[in-house]
């Protein structure tokens, strides 16, 4: 379904600011997999997601979707396979346009945009049905400007727009991080429902360990551009937060110890 082969990415190479963002990432996702990625700031989570989306082109390695090499395919072309929800609730929708107009734009992800009327009666019905599944009353506000919605509502709409056209891969970039707790819960519930409903292959970046454990069938932990720990299916089901912390300290601690050894030499 999705494969990452020996991906490397360095920011600002050959300068004092040089930073290894991704180091030798090798992973495969099967259709229907739901992987959660955790890691501290600067671990490379977002870089990995952006590499999948095409906003960042890796220095080395190959990204393939369904066996097709998409490494150099520009972001907007790759978006035909990929649905995305950003961290910033304002990023995924156009504020000056109505809910139905926003949905028309998301509909264009899978096909050529025509010179026919954007919002037809038929489409409006379809939009209404999909919006109703969110259960936050957006189905009665099709002509409301999206800029007038709350952050939670906008993020729910972004999530719907990213999923209802059934992309091959759904990318979620800490999509609940900017919301208050009650809205976070709503978005997480909707994420679970929508991913199940459309059986989407999903990659979710989060900084909350509980979330990472609760969601999905796979888990990757990242540090300094590497995937330092992963747990799949049964393994992951038994994972607890303290296990994760333990693992993290084990791996990190070892490296710190070896650093110290190097320094003292």
């Amino acid at each position: 379904m999705l494969s990452l082969n020996e991906i490397h990415k360095t920011f600002y190479p050959n300068t004092p600011d040089e930073r290894l963002a991704l180091v030798d990432v090798n992973q495969k996702l099967e259709a229907g997999d739901f992987v959660t990625i955790i890691g501290s700031n600067g671990a490379g989570k977002s870089t990995l997601l952006n590499t999948l989306a095409g906003s960042i082109i890796p220095d080395e390695g190959e990204v393939a979707i369904d066996g097709r090499d998409v490494t150099r395919l520009p972001e907007q072309k790759r978006a035909a396979y990929i649905g995305r929800v950003f961290q910033d609730p304002m990023a995924g929708t156009a504020p000056g346009m109505t809910i139905e107009e926003n949905m028309v734009i998301s509909l264009g992800r899978t096909k050529r945009r025509s010179l026919f009327r954007g919002v037809s009666k038929q489409l409006r019905e379809r939009f209404r049905e999909h919006l109703a599944t969110l259960e936050i009353g957006l189905e009665d506000r099709l002509n409301t400007k999206v800029g007038l919605l709350s952050g939670g509502e906008r993020q729910a709409l972004s999530l719907l727009m990213a999923t209802f056209t059934e992309p091959k891969i759904l990318l979620l970039d800490e999509h609940t991080a900017a919301l208050d707790p009650s809205k976070q819960e709503l978005i997480l519930r909707l994420t679970r429902e929508l991913v199940e409903k459309h059986s989407l292959t999903t990659v979710m970046v989060t900084h909350q360990m509980e979330q990472a454990i609760e969601f999905g069938n796979r888990l990757w932990m990242m540090d300094e551009g590497k995937i330092i720990f992963e747990a799949n299916d049964d393994e992951k089901d038994e994972l607890t937060v303290s296990d994760l912390l333990q693992n993290f300290e084990n791996i990190r601690g070892k490296r710190m110890a070896s650093d110290r050894a190097l320094l003292s030499k």
Binding site: A53, E75, Q76, K77, R78, A79, A80, R84, F86, A91, G92, T93, A94, P95, G96, M97, E101, N102, I105, S106, G108, R109, T110, R113, M161, A162
Partner: peptide
């Protein structure tokens, strides 16, 4: 119209 409103979003929907 959306391009002038939110380019990043429009690109993410393959335009």
């Amino acid at each position: 119209r959306a391009t002038g409103d939110n380019q990043k979003m429009v690109r993410s929907f393959s335009a």
